Simulated assay, not measured.
Amino acid sequence: MSWKITALAPRAVIEQALLAHEEAFDWDPGIVLSGSEIAEDRPDDWQLEAWLERKPGKREKAALAALFSGEPPGLVVEKLPETDWLVASQQDLQPIRAGRFHVHTPEHPVLNEPGVAEFTIPASQAFGTGQHATTAGCLAMLTHMRGQGILVRNCADIGTGTGLLAFAALTLWPRALATASDIDPVCVGVVEANAAANGIAMGPRGGQLVMTVADGMDHPLLAARAPYDLVIANILAGPLIDLAPDFARSLVPGGHLLLAGLLESQESAVRAACRRAGLRLGARLVNGDWSILWLRKRR
């Protein structure tokens, strides 16, 4: 991707634009979007960034401007250097140290701390792209769940991306059956490569990981391997709301659901959908602007 469009606005304005993006079902998949604060010491000043492989024209600018209610902020268009923009954007990405886990790119050294599980994810596959805080929050919450004595025999990671959270679940519950899925077929090879690099066995038995391509919970393999003790979904608030009934149906009575990818401002809507599906809140944590929710299915 060699072009970028940037819009600067207050946090609330950017968050509303991100919500509008989630609801834009006809969004051009060639425009990759993310929102973030400009600097840690300026928490209310945010930027919306859009990356494209082509030079943006009137149509692309109009699509971005339409995400804003009222007068949109100014859009700055720039051509990026002819490099791997994703790798370059993450060269300064710091490792994640959360719970029992240390996750880093190959450029960073291992910690060699007793009791700490190390995972190496290449920068080009982006364990932190737009989700650094949610990934760290999920790792911390999984560790907390294990510390509370939660027993997991069968788990699923929906929207797995790189496979990282599935790897973490297998580390905490090494005898569990584990299934990972993503809507993007490219993720199959990514997960398999990362599993090999991190010593995670692929296969259908306990202690192994099965990977498939699925839209949400809609896949025969996910149905056949249900019900689950634990379902993990670090995706977006809109799909989390839509999928809440499917998640609930896939869990054993008393089963656990770990949700992330939602802004704190979106939490009430996600929790309301989960309550309607028979799920109650077990614990929550906030990492930056992001909420991580541990819910339980009623027995």
Rank of each mutant, 00 (worst) to 15 (best):
L67H: 02
A176S: 11
L75D: 04
I38D: 09
R11V: 11
L172S: 00
S34W: 10
D182N: 00
G149L: 07
A123R: 03
N198T: 07
R42N: 11
Q91G: 01
A24I: 02
A180E: 08
P10Y: 05
A180G: 12
L93Y: 15
C138M: 00
L151Q: 14
V210C: 12
G189W: 01
R276N: 15
L177Y: 13
L279Q: 02
D26R: 06
G115K: 04
F68M: 08
E113T: 15
L285C: 13
R275G: 04
A9K: 12
W51V: 14
S2P: 07
T83L: 11
E71T: 15
P185L: 02
A50K: 08
V252A: 14
A233I: 02
W85Q: 06
A197P: 09
D41W: 13
D44G: 11
G35S: 05
V32K: 12
A224N: 12
P220K: 08
L75S: 04
G282E: 04
R153G: 13
A269Q: 15
L251Q: 08
T6R: 13
L295E: 00
A20P: 07
N112V: 04
G130W: 14
I5E: 03
G159W: 05
V186F: 07
A197I: 09
I292P: 02
M211D: 01
L151D: 12
N234I: 00
H21L: 08
L33D: 01
G115W: 00
I200T: 05
L93A: 15
E60A: 06
P245F: 05
R205V: 00
Q91Y: 06
L236V: 06
P245D: 03
P122V: 04
V286M: 14
N198E: 11
L67W: 00
I150A: 13
G199C: 04
G278N: 14
N154P: 00
A248V: 12
A273N: 07
H102I: 01
A272R: 13
V110H: 12
G207F: 06
L262Q: 14
L295R: 00
A178W: 05
R146Q: 10
D28Y: 05
Q16I: 07
Q266T: 06
P239D: 06
D218M: 06
D246E: 12
P109N: 05
R153P: 02
A273M: 06
A126I: 10
S2M: 15
V186H: 10
V32L: 14
Q90L: 06
P10S: 12
L67A: 03
I38L: 15
A17L: 03
R205G: 07
L164M: 09
C155Y: 04
Q94H: 08
R271H: 01
P56N: 08
Q94D: 09
G161M: 03
V152I: 12
